[in-house]
Amino acid sequence: MAQPFQNIDRLSLNQITTNRWNMKEAVDGCARAGVPWIAMWRDKVADAGLAASKRLAQDAGLRVSSLCRGGYFPAATAAERRERIDDNRRAIEEAAELGAEVLVLVCGPAADRDIDGARAQVADGIAEIVPYAQQCGVKLGIEPLHPMYAGQRSVIVTLEQATTMARRHAAHEVGVVVDVFHVWWDPNLYREIARAGEDGRILGFHVSDWIVPMPDMLLGRGMMGDGLIELRRMREAVEQAGYTGPIEVEIFNQAIWDTPGDEVVATMKQRYLEHC
C-alpha cells in the first residue's frame, strides 16, 4: 500500500469544491492555505475574464492542473454538433492561455435513444478537435462518468471505454482522467488503470468519496474519508501506472458548498494527507 503523503505538493483545488467562491476568492483561498494547484471551470473563468483568471493564478504562484470542461459532442443536428465543436475549440484556446495542459472532456449524453450513435459522435468530435488541441499544446482527457449519468451527462461510462477511445490517437494527444467517484465500483478497475498507463494515458486523478446513503444523485459526493472508496489503493494504482501529477479534489455537495470556503479547504488538506 502506498505511504501517506507528507506534504500537499500535488494537491489541487477543483473549483467546484468551493462552488460559491468566485475566481479571485478561490485563488486567494488556495494561496492562504498553501495549496499549489487549482483546477478551473470555464464558467468561473468567463465570470472573471480569461486574462484576469490567468493573472490571478500567476500572481498567487498557482499552477492550473486542468480546465473543465470540454465535450458534450452528441447533438440532434449537424448544426448543433458544429456548435459543440466550435465551443470545444474555444475551450482548448482557454486552456492554452491559462497554462492548463489538460482539457477535461465530459463527453455528453445521447440526443435521442441511440446511445451507440452518440458514442460514435463522441469519437468523431474528439477526432475533429485533436489537431487543434495539439496545435495549442493542450491534451484532451476523456473522463468516464458513473453509469447513472449516461442519460444526462456522458455516454462514456467506464475506464475501458475511455481508454479504448483515447487509443485511437497518440498518447501525447488524448488520454483519460480517473475520477474515483465515477470508477470505484468497476470490477475491472485496476486492470484498466494499468492498461491506461501502458502508454502514459492517465492525465488526471480526481478524489472525493462515495457516501451512503447518497443524499443527491449529482450533489452527493463526500469529502475523502467519509465514504467507501479505497482512495489510497487507487492512488497507488495510478502511480504504478505512471501518473505522478496533481491530484484534484472535486466535490459536488450542497452541504460542502454551504460551508465557508476556508473551512472546506482546511478539511480538504487534512483528509488528503490522511486518506489519499
Score class of each variant (00 low, 15 high):
M148L: 00
R271F: 04
H275D: 04
A170G: 15
Y132K: 11
E83V: 02
R233T: 13
H206N: 05
L145S: 01
W41G: 15
P4N: 13
P246Y: 00
K269R: 13
A196W: 11
E25V: 02
E230D: 14
S208R: 05
V106W: 12
I92P: 06
G175F: 05
R191F: 06
F252A: 13
L219D: 10
A127M: 10
E93R: 11
R195I: 03
V212P: 03
R195E: 13
P246T: 07
T259V: 07
M224Q: 12
M268N: 07
E263I: 15
P215A: 10
P36M: 15
D258M: 10
G197W: 15
W257E: 06
A266G: 05
E173I: 02
L140I: 14
F5G: 04
R20Y: 02
I85S: 02
N253D: 12
M23Q: 15
D186C: 00
G71S: 07
L13E: 03
L218V: 15
A31D: 08
K24E: 00
Y190D: 04
D114W: 08
R10I: 14
L98E: 03
P144H: 03
W210V: 05
P144E: 01
M165H: 01
R195M: 08
M234S: 03
E230M: 11
A241D: 03
V176G: 01
V183W: 00
P4R: 11
